[in-house]
Simulated assay, not measured.
Amino acid sequence: MSVRSLSSLSILSLLAAAGAARAQDITIAVAGPMTGAVASIGEQIRHGAELAAEAINKNGGVNGKKIQISIQDDACDPKQAVAIANRILSAGIKFVDGHACSGSSIPAAEVYGENNILMMSPASSAPKLTDNAAKSGFTTIMRLYGRDDAQGRFIGPWIKENYGTKKIAILHDKSAYGKGLADVVKESLNAAGIKEVLYEGINAGDKDYSAVVNRLKSAGVEFLYFGGYHTEAGLIKRQAGDQNYQFQLMMGDSLATPEFWSVAGPAGEGTLFTFPTDARETEAAKGAMEQFKQINFVPEGFTLFSYAVIQAIAGGIAKANSTDPVAVAKTLRTTSVDTVLGPVSFDEKGDVKNPRYDINVWRDGKYSKLTQ
């Protein structure tokens, strides 16, 4: 049976599809920004989920049941994310691969947690996601991705060692993801005795950041850490280049998309970003990489994380011998499951254990691991 991708155009179509599949299949909703400014992230998680389900189904499914994928578009918007969560609830779907943006995941998790739907994010890194869930007593909110505080603790000492004598500025886009990551990096640097010369938020979605560039330039900024997404970062770097102003830009994991270079162009040369250690060359990813090759899709960014979420949910269902989300979540917290990222396990909050990071650099329109 092939994987069916269902749109979120209407609640009636979602209900009908879920109802038809319910007797023999396991439906997993894949929720993320399929449209909008960061639609490239949605494309990544969609492809990852669909190919994971395809591989699992070819191997007999989960406890004799096939996995069906239902694609849901939240456009990285909190209100749409809550609407999607309620739509998933009404359809009787019990498992969610998503959401991607932290600003969407956090409010949507309230709906899932209150109704015992297992949500596992492949991309959201804001600590509030699982922290809030734990405070509310929700046991079905999880993520197969490292938290911002882990990422901040990793990068803070590196920035100090390599750029501690430079004038450092920290900007963010005011989003749950961007500000959360910027705050963690600021805290890490300040604790290490490094004080930034500028810390402020910008307005995401603007096209002209010349005023921001002028403030950076006036402050003599030599190193900028930006918590946000690739579009704004690309514009800032390109517009700085237009003024012949050079500084070292560093960001978090959202920069793992070719769209950054399409916006920044040559001005993006040398831009740094952190991202979990690349699993594409590992033995665990070999089969998946062959699948992606067959459809001519490069599994960048969050693709393999979404693939792994589907595998983790399927593995939890198999080990629990149950499709009860509470039972599956409990099982995943007490055992490890094999994924395209290798064996993964989760802590009591539902966070993946022991995330690992690399520093990557953009050169000639491509990014790769930084070697020093």
Score class of each variant (00 low, 15 high):
residue 5 S to D: 13
residue 26 I to E: 09
residue 29 A to L: 04
residue 32 G to C: 10
residue 34 M to H: 13
residue 41 I to G: 11
residue 41 I to K: 05
residue 55 A to M: 08
residue 61 G to N: 15
residue 64 G to M: 08
residue 68 Q to T: 06
residue 70 S to A: 15
residue 71 I to M: 00
residue 79 K to P: 02
residue 79 K to Q: 14
residue 86 N to A: 08
residue 90 S to A: 11
residue 100 A to W: 12
residue 106 I to E: 01
residue 106 I to S: 01
residue 114 E to R: 13
residue 119 M to S: 02
residue 122 P to A: 12
residue 126 A to L: 14
residue 127 P to V: 06
residue 135 K to Y: 12
residue 143 R to M: 02
residue 144 L to F: 09
residue 147 R to A: 05
residue 153 R to Q: 08
residue 153 R to L: 06
residue 158 W to D: 12
residue 159 I to V: 12
residue 162 N to D: 03
residue 171 L to Y: 14
residue 180 G to R: 04
residue 184 V to W: 03
residue 186 K to W: 03
residue 189 L to G: 11
residue 203 N to C: 00
residue 206 D to R: 07
residue 207 K to M: 12
residue 211 A to S: 14
residue 213 V to A: 09
residue 218 S to D: 12
residue 223 F to Y: 11
residue 227 G to T: 02
residue 231 T to Q: 14
residue 235 L to V: 10
residue 242 D to K: 02
residue 247 F to A: 11
residue 248 Q to R: 14
residue 250 M to C: 15
residue 253 D to V: 10
residue 259 E to Q: 01
residue 263 V to F: 07
residue 265 G to C: 06
residue 267 A to E: 13
residue 269 E to L: 01
residue 271 T to D: 06
residue 281 E to Y: 05
residue 286 K to Y: 13
residue 286 K to E: 15
residue 295 I to H: 11
residue 306 S to N: 10
residue 310 I to L: 13
residue 314 A to W: 08
residue 314 A to R: 10
residue 320 A to V: 12
residue 327 A to D: 15
residue 331 T to K: 14
residue 335 T to M: 09
residue 347 D to A: 06
residue 365 G to Q: 04
residue 369 K to V: 15
